[in-house]
Simulated assay, not measured.
Amino acid sequence: MTFSESLRKENDAIFKEIFNHPFVDGIGKGKVPKEALKHYIKADFEYLNAFMHIYGIAVSKSSNRDDISLFHDQIGFVLNSETHPHHNFCEQAGVVYEDMQGYPLPPTADHYIKHMMYHAQIGDLGEILCALLPCPWTYLEIGKVLMEKYKPNDDHPFYPWITFYAEAEVRGLTGKLCDRLDKLAEEASGRQLIRMKEAFRKSCQLELAFWEMAYTCEEWPVKEGVIQQ
């Protein structure tokens, strides 16, 4: 069993909770509250901006061109392709994508970004990959699960979203990240492997929490005011 396979097995319970979450299952059923869709888009737009920055940190810690190319391709995918599922959500919520951008992060999304940034700043490439990987991996499996469970056709309101994450491009990019992680794990010390597993587990937990955050339209306990200069 490879290191990435062991990570997937150890976190199977979290993956299953994600698949069964009412927001995720609602995508398959074609019924998600519009406010939840809008809350998701606002948070995910800023989350993906941070995600690209963290890939940039991975580039800065790369010692060879193969790794630089790997992370460069991931940035390109987020920047140029992953806007498509956002547009699908916007269409179903009846909003303009540009109007959903520039909002403050809700607590869970804020914590998730800072968790990844922590590992990016102090960790090696293996640790960074473990913090990043649950995002594309869970979405890939969500797409596959929803395709198998609901068998949507092109009349389904979330057909573009589901098929985007179930398609070969997402699978290929995720597979490349897993392959690189497995090679890094072979050279890692016992302590490094523990840190990598901890980073992966917490990111899985925060993926689940992100769906809950969007579904409940989570906000800060006290409405934020303007920070004085």
Rank of each mutant, 00 (worst) to 15 (best):
A188P: 09
Y139G: 07
K197L: 01
Y139F: 10
L79D: 09
F164P: 06
A166E: 06
W220I: 00
A166T: 10
P106K: 06
L7F: 01
Q92I: 09
F45V: 15
R171H: 15
D25G: 05
P107I: 07
G126H: 02
M213D: 07
G123F: 04
E35T: 03
K176E: 12
L132M: 11
E10C: 09
R191K: 15
G126T: 09
Y165V: 03
Q121H: 15
S189W: 08
L70I: 05
V170A: 03
V96F: 13
I122N: 09
P152Y: 01
Y40S: 04
G172S: 10
T2L: 07
Q205L: 11
V96C: 12
S69G: 11
F15D: 14
I57M: 09
L181M: 09
A43I: 01
E10S: 09
A209T: 03
A214Y: 07
M100K: 05
S62N: 08
E98G: 07
K144N: 09
S189I: 09
Y112A: 04
D67I: 11
G123Q: 06
H21Q: 08
S62M: 09
I162H: 03
L208V: 09
N80G: 13
R195I: 05
D155L: 15
Q101E: 12
I113N: 03
V222R: 07
H87Q: 15
H115V: 02
G94N: 05
K176S: 10
R8F: 14
I68H: 00
N88P: 06
